[in-house]
Every structure is written in structure tokens, then in C-alpha cells.
Design a binder for these strands. Structure first.
Length: 505
RNA sequence: GGCCCGUUCGUCUACCGGUUAGGACACCAGAUUUUCAUUCUGGUAAUAGGGGUUCGAUUCCCCUACGGGCUACCA
């Protein structure tokens, strides 16, 4: 039995897809897939103040990178269209008017200035059941006063009339039964003066019309959940309501509060899945992908931030997450984001995947550093040799560029103080002996090198570091003989000679 | 301020009444690697506090403290 799990996702007002957003979609995806259902994602399309050009496609691109491809993702012209909020204005208005007619909402004529005055006069002013009788609205005004106002086109909003004493219950997939007293919420605006809906109305109307089955969102929405539940009750009936899940927040690594883009900038780690250029400011925010993360690792670390399968396993592939995921093991408390652990996940994944599958990414990351890796077969060998030492894809150039071209810079301080004629002679001899070698592999090279050393009365330890500097340029990289074996006889000899000539001066 | 949600090593977390409270990241020490990493071994480190309930509470309940969230014609 296959079920269609339809979910809605609201992009961030500033564009960009942050960790919390990806995790929300990820949990949606895992939930849908683990129930054998289709995953239908609707990206909320609120134009006007919030609309960011390109945000939808960007989100879809990010999700594709993560491997979270929806079976269907109507953006424009889909079966439940129109999707753009401004094109749906009449729909929202119709439902809002319906609510007024049924006595669940009312017109409010208070101007923003009047409300502002109230707020400054009364410290904890809330437009709620307690004060609505003293405000200017269709509840306090006589019917024959209201009609002229409406007819004259007086600016007004439609507010929900929250019951003064009613318990609102609903089941949250993570928190279980949640009970609120409706009186605690104020009379939220449902339809603004410009006839655009607020989130509260739009979310309920759209979820109904677009047959949303599951509504996962951040914990910050919990306090307004009773408003939404009530709207469902008034408009469509509670049986129709999607299943709610309020996900725990992802918190700053230091200090307090939700993780924000600013924290990433400040602490030096990405917060967005992929690079995002704010179309308004042209400001670039780096993404996990561009900083060298593997999508497998990104998904893995996000999944574990607030969920685990109860075992001690920490490395999960997406299919494995699908198989083991269950909503009731999602945490209630927020989790601090730890970039060090994020890098650890990536390192584990780089070690885990095979060299061949990394070719494209490594090639492009090398190209960015001006290193051309033309030979795929050779590249794969390079990757196999160095990948265990890389936490990020961006570590590859540092760890492997010398396998494609001779070092341009040498760590001379590592060699020069102890350099002498004896070593000069030793390397001259090494070049000669290497030229004669029939087999060119790491084991034979090491054997040969040590024999030359003992024949020349040099301790291998004293010439090993110079050899490394000659081949690599610095004190890093895989075993020297592995490097020599890979770059080949001619190149090895060339590098030794080049360096020997250089250090003489 | 009001309301809501939450609270196990520094961090992510396991335990769903009986454990020497386990794992991972980070950190420290040792081994391996005649580079640097990796790897391996070991170590430091937690049930916020106080009341109940119970033969027995990290686990269930209450209070306090702390943290987070919401409190817009933003989402």
C-alpha cells in the first residue's frame, strides 16, 4: 500500500537553505520513504515581501545534491495551482469571509497607529479576548456601522476570534498529545489589509487545498499551533488536518539561541547547503557543498542532530536512514551544532566511499587551485592514496597537487641546515641507481634507497626527509616511496636533480 | 513581563524503575608511521537542585533554577 505523503516547505525570507531547513525536509523524506510513500514536496511560494527570486530552484538544487529528490514538486502550473500566493488572494479572502460569517472571525478596523499607541500605553498589550470588546471591530460596532465602513473600503483586517476558554488538543508526532488553552493566544490577523493572508491562514487553506498530509516545521511554531488547529476545525474539520511534527531547533555552537547565518560567518563554518548569492545584496554565503562536504556526510550529520536509532551506529547512508528512521525517536530538545563533528562525519565518508566516485569532485577542486588532472586513471590512484588524510574535499589540493606537478615551493628550512657534500653525493648516486632500476614500485624503491644509503655510509633517516622535500615540497603527504612509485621514474629523478641543483646555490 | 517547550560528560547522544550510567566528537597520554595525517590503545569528563511516589529512581509526579521559543497587518 503506497501512500502519498505531501509536505510543504517554507523557504527562508532571506533565501538560502540552512541546516534546519534541510533537516526538516530530510525528516519529511525519511518519514515518507520509511512508510513506503511517495514524497511530494510543495515549496511555499509567498511572493510579495518574502519572495526571493531563484529561491525555489535553489532549494530544489540543494535537495537534489542531498539526494532528497521529491517524486513531485509542483512549483508552477501544478495540479493544485495557482501556487503563487498573490494569485491565490481571492481564495484566502473567501475562506476568511466564511469564518467571519460563521462567527469565528471578525473585521478589525484599528489602524496600525492605534495599535502601536495601545502597545506603548499598555506594556503587555495583546489583541485578545480580554480586550477585543474595547477595540474597533465588527464585534463592538453595530452592524449598520460596519457595513458602511466596508462599503467605503475602509482598511481593515480579519482576525480570528480565539475562544475565551477552550482547550485545543492535537497530536504531535514528536511530542505526543499537546494541549493548549486557546485563550492564551491573541486574536491573530488572518487576512491583512492588502488582502494577502498571513501565514496562519495561508498554511491552513493551502494545506487543505493542496492535500498536505504531513506538516513538519520548527519548534518555534508550537505556540501558534492552536490557531492553526482551530482554523482546521472551523474550516475543514479536524479529520482532514495533516499530522503535525514540531522539530527541535538547531542551536548556535556557542552562546544562546537559534543557529543563524551570521553565526556561520562569525565562527567560520557554513550554514547553507550550497552557495547562495543574495539577489538583493549580491552577497555570497558559502555552502557545505562548496566547502568540501560530501552530500552523504551532510545528510548523515543532519539526521543525527536530533535523532538516533538507539544503537551506537553513527554512520548511515540515506537508504539506511530510510530503513531505520522513526519519528518517535526524534528528540524534543534543541541541539547545538558542532562543526568539528560535522567534519568528522565528512572524513568518515571520504574514507568510506571508493576513489572512483570522488573523481569529479576532486578534479574540480584541483582545477580551482590551478592543478589539472587530465588522466582519470591516474587521478583515481591519487585519490585512493590520499583520501584517508582528507577531512574535506578541499583538503585534496594540499594533499595531492605534488602528484600532478613538481613542487613550486620548497620547505628549505627543513633541509638546508643539515645539507652537506655527503648528501649531495648521496643523491647524485641515487639518481644513477634509480635510473638503472627495472622494477619501479614502492617496496623495491625503499629497498634500493636504503642500500644506496648504507653503501654511502648515510643513515636512511637523514636522507628520507630531504627526499620528501624534493618530491613533495614540504613535510606532509603519503609515504615518500609510494609517491615516487606513483609519479614514475622520470619525474622522480627529475625532481631530485632539480632540487639538488637548487640547493647548491 | 505573560505563555509554551525543554534539561544525562564541554558538544551530539544511549538507557524507556534495578547498569561499575554506554558510545561518538573534542581534549590529554602512549603505540605505530624515520614527514604530516590516518590508525590503534588508554585516560579526564555527565544524570541542574530540592521534594515526593517506590523495596529501589537518570527514568514517574511536583516545585525551583537554568536554557530555548513565541508574544507583528514576518514567516
Amino acid at each position: 500500500m503506497s501512500e502519498k505523503i505531501r509536505v510543504r516547505f517554507a523557504p527562508s525570507p532571506t533565501g538560502g537553505l540552512h541546516l534546519g531547513g534541510v533537516r526538516t525536509v530530510l525528516y519529511n523524506y525519511l518519514f515518507a520513504r520509511s512508510h513506503g510513500g511517495d514524497f511530494i514536496l510543495r515549496i511555499e511560494d509567498t511572493d510579495q515581501s518574502r519572495f526571493v527570486p531563484g529561491a525555489e530552484q535553489y532549494i530544489l538544487d540543494c535537495l537534489a545534491w542531498c539526494g532528497l529528490v521529491p517524486d513531485e514538486s509542483p512549483v508552477h502550473g501544478g495540479p493544485c495551482g495557482p501556487y503563487r500566493q498573490s494569485e491565490r488572494k481571492p481564495i484566502y479572502k473567501r475562506y476568511a469571509e466564511q469564518l467571519v460569517k460563521d462567527g469565528y472571525a471578525y473585521y478589525a478596523f484599528d489602524t496600525p497607529a492605534e495599535l502601536e499607541a495601545k502597545r506603548t500605553a499598555t506594556p503587555n498589550f495583546q489583541y485578545s479576548h480580554a480586550v477585543r470588546a474595547s477595540m474597533k471591530n465588527s464585534l463592538t460596532l453595530a452592524a449598520d456601522e460596519v457595513k458602511p465602513l466596508l462599503d467605503a473600503g475602509t482598511p481593515h483586517v480579519i482576525r480570528i476570534k480565539m475562544p475565551a476558554n477552550e482547550e485545543v488538543k492535537f497530536t504531535d508526532l514528536i511530542r505526543g498529545e499537546v494541549i493548549f488553552n486557546a485563550s492564551q493566544s491573541d486574536d491573530k490577523v488572518l487576512l491583512k489589509a492588502d488582502e494577502m493572508p498571513t501565514y496562519h491562514l495561508a498554511v491552513v487553506v493551502d494545506d487543505h487545498l493542496m492535500k498536505i498530509t504531513h506538516a513538519f516545521r520548527g519548534e518555534e511554531w508550537l505556540p501558534s499551533a492552536p490557531v492553526h488547529v482551530l482554523l482546521w476545525k472551523y474550516l475543514f474539520g479536524l479529520e482532514q488536518m495533516p499530522q503535525w511534527a514540531h522539530l527541535p531547533l538547531i542551536l548556535k555552537p556557542d552562546g544562546n539561541g537559534k543557529l543563524s547565518k551570521r553565526d556561520g560567518d562569525r565562527l567560520g563554518f557554513p550554514v547553507f547547503a550550497m552557495n547562495w548569492i543574495d539577489p538583493k545584496t549580491n552577497e555570497l554565503t558559502k555552502g557545505f557543498r562548496e566547502l568540501g562536504f560530501l552530500p552523504e556526510a551532510f545528510v548523515n550529520l543532519l539526521a543525527m542532530l536530533g535523532w538516533n536509532d538507539g544503537s551506537e551506529q553513527e554512520i548511515f547512508a540515506l537508504e539506511e536512514l530510510v530503513a531505520k528512521f522513526s519519528m518517535d525517536r526524534v528528540h524534543k530538545a534543541g541541539a547545538r551544532f558542532d562543526y568539528e563533528k560535522a567534519k568528522w562525519y565528512n572524513h568518515e565518508w571520504i574514507k568510506k566511499v571508493d576513489a572512483g566516485s570522488l573523481k569529479q569532485e576532486v578534479k574540480s577542486v584541483l582545477a580551482q587551485q590551478g592543478v589539472e588532472a587530465a588522466d582519470d586513471h591516474y587521478l583515481e590512484k591519487v585519490i585512493a592514496m590520499v583520501k584517508d588524510r582528507c577531512s574535506l574535499l578541499s583538503d585534496f589540493p594540499q594533499q595531492s597537487s605534488f602528484l600532478f606537478e613538481a613542487p613550486k615551493q620548497y620547505d628549505l628550512d627543513a633541509v638546508k641546515p643539515k645539507w652537506n657534500g655527503q648528501k649531495q653525493l648521496f643523491f647524485a648516486e641515487t639518481v644513477l641507481q634509480f635510473q638503472l632500476m627495472q622494477q619501479w614500485n614502492a617496496a623495491d624503491l625503499e629497498k634500493e634507497f636504503k642500500e644506496i644509503a648504507s653503501a654511502n655510509q648515510v643513515k636512511p633517516g637523514e636522507v628520507l626527509l630531504p627526499l620528501r622535500i624534493m618530491l613533495v615540497g614540504g613535510k606532509f603527504g603519503p609515504g615518500v616511496f609510494d609517491i615516487a612509485a606513483l609519479i614514475g621514474k622520470a619525474e622522480t629523478i627529475h625532481r631530485i636533480e632539480k632540487f639538488a641543483a637548487l640547493i647548491k646555490e
